[in-house]
Simulated scan of single mutants.
Amino acid sequence: MPISRIAVGSAAEVGQVDALKAALAEFISVLIFVFAGEGSGMAFNKLTDDGSTTPAGLVQASLAHGFALFVAVSVGANISGGHVNPAVTFGAFVGGHITLARSVLYWIAQCAGSVVACLLLKFATGGLETSAFSLSSDVTVWNALVFEIVMTFGLVYTVYATALDPKKGNIGIIAPLAIGFIVGANILAGGAFDGASMNPAVSFGPAVVSWSWSDHWVYWLGPFLGAGIAGLVYELFFINQTHEQLPTTEF
């Protein structure tokens, strides 16, 4: 059972050099991802007079986030595993692939990377707003919660299949590409309804800098639930329970 492999870790683990390097890698990867993703949206709004809610804006967001995530995962993969997302870290924790202590370190680094990226964008654009995620006028918080659960399930399931499964073989080479693709596709599916976050850190940075917290809990609870379900499903049904636990740096 995957639940039996969950490890809390220790405070000493957080201070280890490799853990600190991994956290720094997560900070940088999230900074790269959010700066490109959020920044592209700000640029599009500037060029189109706030046209982000148009079909073209949705396609732009999908491409920008898909491309940026491909790079962010790739550059962090050999150091931290390239999670670039607190929900992905949680999904890996549920499957026993990372300890709780290191997960908390990752979460702090990921959220900090998002906040710094948004602060840099605000400064570089002369004070333009870093828009926080919000629900469409005809979408309830429960609608949005389902969207976030399902989309994040798809994301973390993809992570497991292409990066964490010990039987992945050569498919692991395309893991960053597959992860970028599923995020881009999910934005096309859910972007018009709740912004399609799938990533609490991506939602956290703009919320802090713009100080806008409306329905913010949805962007934490939904991704964490979706990630946890994906981790449990993949571990229970598709991973041989006798395999050795993967080192964190394998992803």
Rank of each mutant, 00 (worst) to 15 (best):
L188S: 10
S114I: 00
V17T: 14
F224M: 15
A43I: 12
I229D: 07
N240R: 13
V84E: 04
T248V: 15
M42P: 09
A23V: 00
V150H: 00
V73R: 02
W217K: 07
A124Q: 09
L31W: 08
V233K: 05
A144S: 12
G39R: 02
T89N: 10
T152E: 08
D18N: 14
N85I: 01
H83G: 02
L232G: 11
F204R: 00
S210C: 03
G169I: 07
K21I: 03
G66A: 02
I187T: 06
T54W: 10
K168G: 08
L69N: 05
P166I: 05
S131D: 11
I171S: 14
S4I: 13
F153P: 01
V115W: 03
I229P: 09
A43D: 08
L100C: 10
A132V: 02
C111G: 12
V84Y: 02
A72S: 13
A117D: 11
I239L: 10
A196S: 15
L47D: 15
V59M: 13
I179Q: 04
G169A: 13
V208M: 11
I6Y: 02
N240Y: 11
V139W: 07
V183S: 05
T162I: 03
F35I: 03
K122P: 03
A43F: 08
T99Y: 07
A230T: 04
F35K: 01
S80T: 06
V156P: 05
G76W: 04
Q245T: 15
I174N: 03
N45L: 08
G191N: 06
F35W: 09
I174K: 01
V156C: 01
I6D: 04
A7V: 11
L121I: 03
M1F: 11
G66N: 04
S114A: 15
S80I: 05
A201L: 03
S80C: 05
G226Q: 03
L225S: 10
N186V: 10
F70W: 14
V71W: 07
F33M: 14
F27C: 04
G96L: 00
P223Y: 02
I149N: 01
N85G: 07
A227F: 06
S40A: 15
L24Q: 03
G226N: 01
L177D: 02
G57V: 04
T130D: 00
Q110F: 08
V73H: 06
F204Q: 05
N240Q: 12
L246P: 12
G126F: 00
G222L: 08
L105G: 01
V115K: 08
F181G: 05
Q60V: 14
S203C: 07
G191H: 04
L58E: 12
A175F: 04
T152A: 05
A189Y: 11
K21F: 11
